[in-house]
Amino acid sequence: MHLKDNRNVKKIERKKFKNKEKKLQRIHYSLLIMAMISFVVNYMFLRNSTIGHDIRYVIYIFCVPVIIGVLFFGIYRREFLIKTYLSFNKTFEKLYVIGFFLLQGVLISYLSFGQIAWITWSYLNKKESEKNKIEIINCNITGFYLKKNPDISFKFNNRTEVLSVTTEMNRENYNRNRKDYKVEITVQKGIWNYYVVKKWELKKKNL
């Protein structure tokens, strides 16, 4: 009788856990959709065009927020993760589960913690750039990308940068030789080694 009672208790606990997970998954799914929509809107309409590079951006605006996010969600979902992990017996299945949830954690962390860090940095970078003088820089064109999502590439501080172009300009670029052109960019220096692009223009070199 005692064994039967234990089985019934475990069965009830499993049912409660499953019901709880179903409710949480619906909430999590809604939050994920909202985060994805927010990311697309911010990227398409609110993103500041910048050129430049600094390893501190990679460390503090990408790596650190993502790592914090993975740890946060790992602790928050530890019960579910442990139960799922223990439900598999084979080593390759356990490794697959670890890899799958780690990849999922990185993605969700980037869309949440990473996005907050990115938006905050973009705002502060723009505010800082507004305090600095306007500069005009000229860079040689290194290439015209003419296919989907066309752009022009150029060298700035020994790194390749790209600027998106309109469909009309892209049609014109088909008949242009990159060696005959340069890009004139109006910028203001922001945080670290990043510059906010105010405007830019493709100009023919004086040969």
Rank of each mutant, 00 (worst) to 15 (best):
I68H: 06
M34G: 13
R77K: 13
N19A: 13
N19W: 10
Y85T: 05
M169R: 03
G99Y: 03
S87F: 07
E184P: 01
Q104L: 12
F45A: 04
I37K: 09
V187L: 03
M44P: 00
I137G: 05
R78T: 09
K147S: 15
N6S: 15
S164P: 00
A117D: 04
V70E: 07
I98W: 05
A117W: 07
N6Q: 15
L95A: 06
K11A: 14
D151E: 10
I108F: 13
Y57A: 05
K179V: 01
N206A: 02
K182D: 02
Y29D: 15
F88W: 08
K16I: 11
V9G: 01
L81S: 08
M44N: 08
F92V: 05
K131N: 15
N158P: 02
K127Y: 02
T167G: 03
G114H: 05
S49C: 05
I134C: 00
C63V: 15
K155A: 01
Q188H: 07
E79Q: 09
R171H: 13
F62Y: 11
E184F: 11
Y195L: 01
Y145V: 08
L107R: 00
L32K: 07
L86W: 02
K11L: 12
T160I: 15
T186A: 06
I141A: 01
I55Y: 09
Y85M: 02
N157G: 04
R14I: 12
N125H: 08
K4E: 14
K204S: 04
G114A: 11
F92K: 11
N48H: 11
K179I: 00
K204C: 00
S164I: 01
V66D: 10
K189A: 08
I191D: 14
G52Y: 01
Y96L: 04
F88Q: 09
G69C: 09
N158S: 13
F72A: 09
T167F: 06
F88E: 11
F62K: 06
K4M: 09
Q104A: 13
Y123D: 07
L32R: 06
